[in-house]
Design a protein around this nucleic acid. Structure first.
Lengths: 203, 203
DNA sequence: AGATACCAAGCAAGCGCTTGGTTTGTAAAT
DNA sequence: ATTTACAAACCAAGCGCTTGCTTGGTATCT
């Protein structure tokens, strides 16, 4: 199961938009703009211009501006949950599973879906409370993947700290890479970065 | 040198505002509002109402809304750099110095200056480029404190990863605590949390 | 022929900030 | 002790602009 196969499957189930469709292109441009300028500073006119239509025409596809933000977040979580699940399943030992989770999340944050992942972290408060609850429910599935592996590592005495806290630390640490990690500079690859994180935990 | 003595010294040097002054009260309310609603969603009318004046009167104290955001950030960094410096100086071994840095930063993030620290992390992009450069220069002093200790730990073989990367991971992990750490819930104290972080790094 | 996708125009509300004038605090001059 | 002077702090009103979103109509595709 390659990454593109997972994406294809999700598109077929209508869980994420085809990147080549009008909707998919808009969501990608929206993620980029939201990350670069922030949700509030991005106007519907900016969004429309990015895909070459009039601002009013946006509301034929989405009822409100917020609905666009929510769609970016929901589709990103869906895709990344599937990618993580696949990565965990493919790994052998628990230590390898953790490495796969770290590596996959780094790739989500710093790769293709990076813009959308940054939006997920930094534009959270721009969602209405109702939408926050919806997105939160999706995140729970995603988080269970991590906790299962971390708890197993703790039981075996490999990990010395509380799994819940370790996961929260990793969430912050990995999210933050988006602000400084530039693969082209310094020659540090994603694999190298993953190694450093494992080494930091003496794992 | 207690925390309040450090604050008093900075006030005397006019590097941070007295929390009891009109300016100090406004900055504290601004930090709270910016954290809760975000900078863009907070209007000058919100800010004025929070300190009980008319919106136009704000511009007697600050020339623009952005100047308020910048002042919140600058004063927060100044205060916390002084607190960190003091904490490092008081500690004995390098391991204790690192623990003091972690503990102090957690306190900055989750204590009195927590609102302002969250603003520093999440509202960064709302600053103009010029202001960003100014604030960045102040952060450099702050960061050198961390790097000196981490490099020393690496040299002694206690730390297995690159100091720059470790600091960046810790920045993310510690900043992120603001989104989940609630001392009243769960009974986890700041000292306990600090222990967990050191344990996570097997230190 | 009927939906789907879009445009051109603009509305109502809210935004940061300005303006002209009034009150308040302070301190020297009488 | 009272007056005078002046700046700092504030208010009331509103200007000009941008915002998210609506409306009525026109292409385009099946």
């Amino acid at each position: 199961m390659t990454q593109s196969h997972i994406l294809q499957a999700l598109i077929a189930e209508n869980l994420v938009s085809d990147p080549d469709s009008a909707r998919g292109r808009l969501l990608r441009e929206a993620a980029r703009l939201f990350r670069d300028k922030g949700y509030e500073r991005t106007t519907v006119r900016d969004l429309a211009a990015a895909v070459g239509i009039q601002s009013g025409s946006l509301f034929h596809h989405f009822r409100t501006k917020e609905e666009i933000l929510k769609a970016v977040m929901v589709e990103t979580i869906r895709l990344n949950t599937a990618l993580m699940q696949s990565a965990v399943d493919a790994a052998g030992s628990d230590r390898e599973k953790l490495r796969a989770l770290v590596r996959t999340e780094l790739e989500s944050i710093n790769g293709q879906t990076g813009e959308a992942m940054a939006v997920l972290v930094f534009e959270w408060r721009s969602l209405s409370e109702g939408s926050q609850a919806e997105v939160l429910a999706l995140r729970d599935i995603y988080e269970r993947l991590w906790l299962d592996v971390l708890q197993s590592l703790q039981k075996d005495g490999v990990l010395n700290a509380d799994p819940f806290i370790v996961r929260r630390m990793l969430t912050g640490a990995l999210s933050w890479t988006v602000t400084w990690y530039k693969p082209e500079r310094g020659g540090l690859t994603l694999d190298g970065l993953t190694d450093q994180i494992m080494a930091m935990m003496s794992l």
